[in-house]
Design a binder for these strands. Structure first.
Lengths: 291, 291
DNA sequence: ACAATTAACGGACTCTAGTCAGAGAAATTC
DNA sequence: GAATTTCTCTGACTAGAGTCCGTTAATTGT
């Protein structure tokens, strides 16, 4: 009777009406949607035209004309890329910068109005949105290198430590010094830090550091609870193992705790085997894999 | 850093791209969105043009031309309303009926594809969608009369009984005979049944039945968990009290259980006071109010 | 060095949505 | 019964989004 399809349609109607208004926030700035979208996508450092086209999925001609329009308004300047002068790079002028800020704030205000309506249930609404977006983007998760000091990486690692606190007996809360003091160990060429992105939301992390010339240690594997059950853990592990191989390591190790049963099962199913302890508590299981 | 606004934007992007595809399911039928939307809104029994205009929020001229287009395709017939010949009523032809079915099935398939991606988390995704839609429609909840035997009313009452089972000690599961045998007692002129709608999703119910000529009993107040904390309970109670007054009752009663603390608090804060028992277990608190 | 490829551009065009004003028919009001 | 209102229809118009294609300039491959 009240089947899922009907609910999806209701959801669709409501969301396109309410949040879709965010898209049309171009209103009141005297500029059509297309131009506004282009303007908002131009980054501070300049964005090349091909990137814009890819992100907005626009025809070359159309984008070209939109850019001309923005140039005429004095908001954007397009110049050849010195590296490849066929390519062109769009940059915001000071006026464009200002206009960009206005759009950003308008969007901000609209969004806040949406959340205001959620009252005491803001967190629940945000979680619901994240769940939906993450499920829909399931096939589009990208794994990219990150600096271990990035906001995104820190966000993930902090969530990871919180998880350990809640799950692993004997993991003291004092163990959360942010920013982390040992970030340097997770940078190339000895280490690595990979973050999984669902659009611009980081939903997973894994890190690598050097134990000795032949051996790397995999650390801090964390998957956002919203993104579990989609094989992301395996993707991250394979990516970090490949990275370790690329960096010249022949062996990998990790320490963990049996309270993290899911993770242990993942390691085992992917060729990791138990090995003798090489660290202390709160770890109570140690594993190794030949790369 | 990863603030709520950014998440909302991500959500917005993803949803308009993915589910927005539902709207564009007109694709492949060789008919623009506007015409497809009109076609899908024409009901079997015929829909008058003003109703279509209101639902789609279209200009008279535009809708008129869309209807002409559908007539030219042989999908719709527009004729004067015999009751008021200025009005006109649009009806589906057999061909239109068939085309309508095609759209319905295409939409169905698209929706199913969305849910398929959720894998084992379908229910969580549906709940998340309902929560978001309900929060956004918060100010647009409509309370309407319902027949106690309607699907919507039964859906709510069943959920209510499930809640009682889970919450009230001594409430036996055997107490859920659906369809309910005593529906007649909740119909006019002696009783009533009000359902709260959020778009086309029923999210709350309250009923009224006769105790004696002067006294009515309020029964089965239920609010969907998704819609709590928005004052809907109070709105429903006030509506049913007003209805009782209109039906000529001067007093109202209800029985409840102290396990339902939130409900009891609502009653108290709205002028209900405890009264002597007039029913037995599982009720353990009885309240009355002069209307 | 020359051909093929790639990137962006700009003009001509189409389609859809939407606005506005006026006309005509039916119903309502005075 | 005349004036006013209500409802729909039509035609003229605008704007935005998008497609197609030929051109130009730079780069790459052989």
């Amino acid at each position: 009777m009240l089947d899922a399809i009907a609910r999806l349609r209701r959801f669709n109607r409501v969301v396109t009406r309410e949040i879709g208004a965010l898209d049309t926030s171009y209103l009141g700035r005297g500029r059509p949607l297309g131009a506004a979208r282009v303007l908002q996508l131009v980054k501070a450092g300049g964005t090349d035209v091909a990137e814009l086209r890819r992100r907005l999925d626009l025809d070359t001609g159309l984008l070209s004309r939109l850019l001309r329009g923005l140039e005429r308004e004095g908001l954007v300047e397009v110049a050849a890329d010195p590296a490849d002068r066929r390519r062109r790079i769009a940059r915001l002028t000071p006026a464009g910068e200002a206009e960009w800020q206005v759009y950003d704030q308008l969007g901000h205000a609209k969004a806040q109005a949406v959340f205001a309506r959620a009252g005491s249930r803001q967190q629940a609404v945000i979680d619901a949105m994240d769940l939906i977006a993450t499920v829909m983007l399931k096939d589009q998760v990208e794994i990219r290198d990150a600096d271990p000091d990035d906001d995104a990486a820190l966000h993930c690692v902090a969530a990871y430590y919180r998880l350990l606190q809640d799950t692993v007996p004997g993991f003291a809360s004092g163990m959360l010094p942010l920013p982390l003091p040992d970030a340097a160990r997770y940078r190339a060429p000895a280490g690595a830090c990979l973050v999984a992105w669902s659009e611009d939301l980081p939903i997973g992390v894994v890190s690598l550091r050097r134990l000795d010339t032949a051996t790397a240690e995999v650390k801090r594997l964390w998957i956002d609870p919203l993104a579990r059950g989609q094989g992301l853990g395996r993707r991250l592990m394979r990516a970090i193992e490949a990275r370790a191989r690329d960096l010249g390591y022949s062996h990998a190790r990790l320490d963990s705790n049996t309270a993290l049963a899911e993770a242990i099962a993942l390691y085992r199913s992917d060729g990791w085997t138990e090995c003798p302890p090489y660290t202390g508590a709160p770890a109570n299981i140690w594993m190794a894999k030949r790369l």
